[in-house]
Simulated scan of single mutants.
Amino acid sequence: MTASSNAYEYLDNVGPRDSEEARLAAVRRYRMVDQPVEDAYDRIAFVAGAIFETPIATVSLVEQDRVWLAACQGLPGVREVGKEPGLCASVIAQDDVYVINNAAVDPRTLDHPLVRGELGLRFYAAAPIRTHDGYRLGTVNVIDSRPRDAGQRQLKALEHLAAIVADELELRLMVIRSAAAEQRMRDTVN
């Protein structure tokens, strides 16, 4: 076995929430960060925004000191934001959908730069992307500059979209592992 396959086996056997280092290793194993936008994630962000009728929707991965936007609708050219102070980082600290109906009066966000700054964030809803082995890697979220209430059906749809992202990530990992196995076979033959 190669060192990289041992790392995959280790990551597969590490339990959920063992450490931030293990969570970050789980983020990296999918090789999504610093990659071009893939259509599947872009479509998920689009659908999230359409369900909530928000101008901004993203699929994000939370790294050590930044949030990588695997897809972003409504903020052209933006691919990453700082992690602190982070709404996405707050979402991955819990299992449930995170909702802020009016950020201008919510004590969690009163001084947040996205609320006080040019974006003028007022509404934010996000579902954590949970891997099959329990790591919360990032979020599917929707953002608006006006306050609003989210319906239970919308929030459930956001959870389902986050689960679809997790499924897509697992398919991606299967392809990565298959390509590595094929390369090992070629190396053995040569």
Rank of each mutant, 00 (worst) to 15 (best):
Y135I: 07
G151Q: 14
H132Q: 14
Y30E: 00
P85M: 00
A45F: 01
A179I: 11
D12T: 11
V37N: 04
A7M: 12
A70D: 03
L119Y: 08
F52C: 01
E84N: 04
I176E: 10
A45L: 00
T188G: 08
D167A: 14
E80G: 02
Y30Q: 01
G15V: 01
Y98T: 05
N190M: 13
R172H: 02
Y8T: 13
K156Y: 11
A57N: 09
A162N: 07
S19Q: 04
V189H: 08
I44V: 08
G15D: 05
V99D: 02
P76T: 09
M32Y: 03
P147V: 05
V59I: 14
L114A: 07
E168R: 13
P113Y: 01
A26W: 00
R184A: 15
E84F: 06
F52K: 12
V62Q: 07
K83M: 14
S4F: 07
G151I: 10
C72A: 09
A180N: 11
C88T: 06
E159C: 14
L61K: 01
T131M: 12
A180Q: 11
L119E: 12
I176V: 09
V105T: 15
E168G: 05
R29G: 03
E170Q: 11
E159D: 15
D96K: 14
Q94Y: 08
E84D: 14
A150L: 00
E182Y: 12
A126E: 03
Y98G: 00
D106R: 01
S145F: 07
D95E: 10
L61D: 09
A103Y: 04
A71G: 08
R31I: 10
V33K: 05
N190W: 12
L75T: 01
L155V: 06
G151W: 07
Q183S: 12
R122H: 04
I129H: 09
Q152R: 14
S145H: 14
P113S: 03
E80C: 07
I129D: 09
Q35R: 10
R186Q: 14
V175L: 13
G74Y: 02
G49L: 04
G15A: 07
R136K: 15
Q35W: 02
V189I: 15
A48S: 01
G120E: 00
P147R: 01
A26T: 07
C88F: 09
I100K: 02
V33M: 10
Q94T: 13
A71L: 00
Y30T: 01
D187S: 12
S90V: 09
G82N: 04
S60V: 09
P55V: 00
D111W: 02
Q73I: 11
A25K: 13
P147I: 06
D111T: 02
V62T: 09
L87W: 02
P36H: 00
L121I: 06
S178T: 10
D149M: 07
P85H: 01
A150H: 05
M185N: 13
A3C: 02
L119N: 11
E182W: 12
Q73A: 09
L137T: 04
G117R: 10
D96R: 15
V97M: 03
S178I: 11
E84Y: 02
E80H: 04
A25M: 10
P36N: 03
